[in-house]
Amino acid sequence: MSGTAQVQAQSRAVAAIDDPILVVRDVHKHFGGIKASNGVDLEVGRREIAGLIGPNGSGKSTLFSLVAGTVAPDRGQIRFDGHDIAGRKAYTIARLGLARTFQIPALFDNMTVTENLLAAAAEGQWDGARQRADETLALLHLEAVAGNRASDLSGGQQKLLEFGRVIMRRASLILLDEVTAGVHPNIRKIILEAIARLRKEGTSFFVIEHDMEMVRNVCDRIIVMDSGRVVTSGTFDDIVRNSEVMQTYLGRPQ
């Protein structure tokens, strides 16, 4: 896949979602001469699992950072659950009910698995935290390592623990950044089952993923980015039939 592939056509209009929890309109973010977000428009619905795909360098992780508040947009609108969050601090957005995982888990290495979970609930979400920690350990099959330090876990277990810390936040929208990348199939299965259960309970998901099998089987709708823009969105079948998407994703001669 070519991270420098240029989109020849203008981004197609994104179909409106009846009840969006996240709305992004004409969002721009430039880093010097690099247009990481170049007029992004998209929506994520309530209880939806929306996938975000595109070549490396297409702007996916930058978009997550803009939504989560770790990067401020140059211009544009971002609304989460009715709140204007463009440019707001990450901790403010998190308190509204948005949470994010990262490709490389950011854990408290010298704390135990249980302590990491409880730490995620320490600000404003403490009521019933110990019970939720036990439930999260069970959901993610981490009971056997509950007393282990985070630094002693395998890479896959660390991804489970980071996901568990997000679950402890009781977030209404969770951004997952390649949460199944490089993990054992058993851990992948645990993650996918947890996503399905949480969605059933009302959680919405926005997922960056390169695993097309996961995208096909889990995501309700797929949003395709290239060169800082949304190219199109639709079901998996819609996407694979789209010639522009196939050019974008497979690359084209320069």
Rank of each mutant, 00 (worst) to 15 (best):
residue 4 T to P: 10
residue 13 A to E: 13
residue 17 I to G: 06
residue 17 I to V: 14
residue 18 D to V: 05
residue 18 D to M: 05
residue 26 D to A: 09
residue 28 H to N: 08
residue 31 F to W: 10
residue 32 G to H: 07
residue 34 I to N: 14
residue 34 I to C: 06
residue 35 K to R: 14
residue 36 A to N: 04
residue 41 D to Y: 07
residue 43 E to C: 04
residue 43 E to V: 04
residue 47 R to V: 03
residue 50 A to R: 12
residue 52 L to V: 01
residue 53 I to Q: 00
residue 62 T to S: 01
residue 62 T to G: 00
residue 67 V to F: 05
residue 69 G to C: 05
residue 70 T to R: 11
residue 72 A to C: 11
residue 75 R to S: 15
residue 79 R to H: 14
residue 82 G to H: 05
residue 85 I to G: 06
residue 88 R to D: 02
residue 96 L to W: 04
residue 96 L to D: 01
residue 103 Q to N: 03
residue 103 Q to E: 08
residue 105 P to T: 02
residue 109 D to Q: 13
residue 110 N to W: 10
residue 111 M to E: 15
residue 114 T to I: 12
residue 114 T to C: 03
residue 114 T to K: 06
residue 119 A to K: 00
residue 121 A to V: 08
residue 124 G to A: 11
residue 125 Q to M: 15
residue 135 E to R: 11
residue 136 T to M: 04
residue 141 H to A: 11
residue 142 L to Y: 02
residue 145 V to N: 12
residue 148 N to E: 15
residue 155 G to K: 04
residue 158 Q to G: 10
residue 159 K to R: 14
residue 159 K to L: 08
residue 163 F to T: 09
residue 172 S to V: 12
residue 178 E to A: 00
residue 181 A to P: 06
residue 183 V to R: 02
residue 184 H to T: 11
residue 190 I to E: 09
residue 192 L to D: 08
residue 202 G to L: 12
residue 202 G to V: 09
residue 203 T to P: 02
residue 206 F to K: 03
residue 208 I to P: 00
residue 213 E to R: 10
residue 215 V to A: 06
residue 224 V to I: 07
residue 226 D to F: 04
residue 229 R to C: 14
residue 230 V to P: 01
residue 231 V to M: 07
residue 234 G to T: 03
residue 235 T to K: 01
residue 238 D to L: 05
residue 240 V to Y: 04
residue 243 S to F: 06
residue 246 M to Y: 07
residue 246 M to F: 09
residue 247 Q to A: 13
residue 250 L to H: 05
residue 251 G to K: 13
residue 253 P to A: 06
